[in-house]
Every structure is written in C-alpha cells, then in structure tokens.
C-alpha cells in the first residue's frame, strides 16, 4: 500500500512537470545576457563574480557555491533546506527579496512569467546532468565601459581605500546586508572598478553614484576596490 501510493505521487509529479511549459531556451539566453550576465557567469569556465556562478543550480541547496560570500539570509535558507527547483527559482526570480529578504542579489525581478520560464529553461541547460554543460565559452561579462587595461591593472592602496570607504559605508552596509541599497562588500575588484567607471562616465544612471564616482581618481577607485574585495564582515 505504502509503496503504491508513493509511486502514484511520483507519477503525478512527472505529469505536472511535463504539462508545464518549459520555456524557450533561446529567448532565455537573450534575457540572461541582458538582465543577469552583468553579475553572473554560466557555462564552461564560469567563475564567481558579483554573483555566484550558475552552473548546476538545479536541485542544489541555496547558498552552496564554493568560494562565494552569500548573505546570511541566503545561508540560513539553504540550511533550512531551500533547494533550487523550478518553483523556487520562479518565485525568486519574480521578486528576489520576497523570498529571501536580505539577499545580496540587487535585482528587482522578472515580472513576466514567460520571461522567467525562458530564463529557467536556459539555466536548466547548464544543470541537472553533467553532460548538459556545453563546451561553450562562459557568457562574456559585458564590458559596460571601455577601460584602458592600465586602469584595471592599478594596484589599490587598501589603507587609502579604508578611509575612502568610510564615505560609502554611510549607505552601503559593511555587513553586506542589502535593504534598498545594494551590498558591495566582497565584490571582485575588477567588477568594482568597472561599475565605478560606468557611473563616472554616466553610463549607469544613479545620480548619487554618478556624483560619488565622478570625483574619484583612477587610483582612488582602485583603492576602494582593493578594500571592499577583502573586507571581512
């Protein structure tokens, strides 16, 4: 009796999953490139950037990618057993903060269910079974600004960075908590430098950040990047 009912339940689940529109991978790839790829990499050779790499996300517990510094809330959810399946990803992508209130993922969400289904279909390609990871280059990190390699190569002075950072910490919480203002603690230095130059060149719109970045020299930006990369909570 017991076995049979289990079997029936499993069969129902398969049916439900099959009935669901799995989404259009191709369209998902385009949405991913526009909305996700500035922080996340996926595919062969993907590494952690501002956000964790997304290979193998399906059926993984939340907060498990090695070497990535998650918010406390994300870690707690993982410990409580949150697993990334279709339903949870769908809820999370609709409004990340509704599921995990202090997640560091500063993203307003994909409101259109079709967009979400498409992105999830795309993510699935790099998940579930190892053979699904294609031998493609990782999604390129879109360069928001053309930066002279010399600028990216500047070694920041963390001591100067610590002083300069005191100005950032009026709004960006040192703990990395994100409440209406994105977390910047633990960002890779290169991403930090690119983001700051994007504000400086007014390619990113936020007026406070344009003003703050606008008066920082290349050395000062490098110093801040060096500091925030290594900042311990």
């Amino acid at each position: 009796m017991y076995r049979i009912s289990l079997f029936v339940a499993a069969a129902c689940f398969v049916q439900a999953a099959a009935a669901r529109d799995l989404g259009d991978e191709k369209r998902g790839a385009e949405i991913f490139a526009r909305k996700c790829a500035s922080c996340h990499q996926i595919g062969a050779g993907a590494v952690n950037r501002v956000g964790p790499l997304l290979n193998g996300i399906f059926d993984r517990k939340a907060g498990q990618v090695e070497g990535f510094r998650y918010s406390k809330d994300m870690l707690r959810q993982g410990a409580d057993g949150l697993v990334w399946n279709f339903e949870n990803l769908d809820v999370y992508l609709e409004n990340p903060k509704a599921l995990i209130s202090r997640t560091r993922m500063n993203f307003r969400g994909l409101k259109d269910p079709r967009d979400r289904a498409d992105v999830i279909a795309y993510l699935r390609r790099f998940s579930a079974n190892p053979q699904d990871i294609p031998e493609a280059a990782p999604t390129a990190f879109p360069q928001e600004v053309e930066l002279d390699p010399e600028i990216l190569a500047i070694e920041g002075d963390p001591e100067y960075g610590e002083y300069l950072a005191s100005e950032c910490l009026t709004c960006h919480q040192r703990s990395g908590d994100d409440e209406g203002i994105p977390a910047i603690t633990g960002w890779p230095a290169e991403d930090f430098v690119i983001a700051m130059h994007a504000y400086k060149e007014k390619k990113r719109p936020h007026p406070v950040m344009q003003m703050m970045a606008g008066r920082l020299s290349n050395e000062e930006i490098a110093a801040l990047a060096a500091y925030f990369e290594t900042l311990e909570e």
Binding site: L169, C171, Q173, D178, G180, I181
Partner: peptide, 13 residues
Amino acid sequence: EESVGWYAGITAD
C-alpha cells in the same frame, strides 16, 4: 526604498 537602506547603513555606521 533607498532611504530605508540609508537609514540602516548610517545607524550601523
């Protein structure tokens, strides 16, 4: 929402 974040930030600071 940004102001709510600022409040949390400055009081922690």
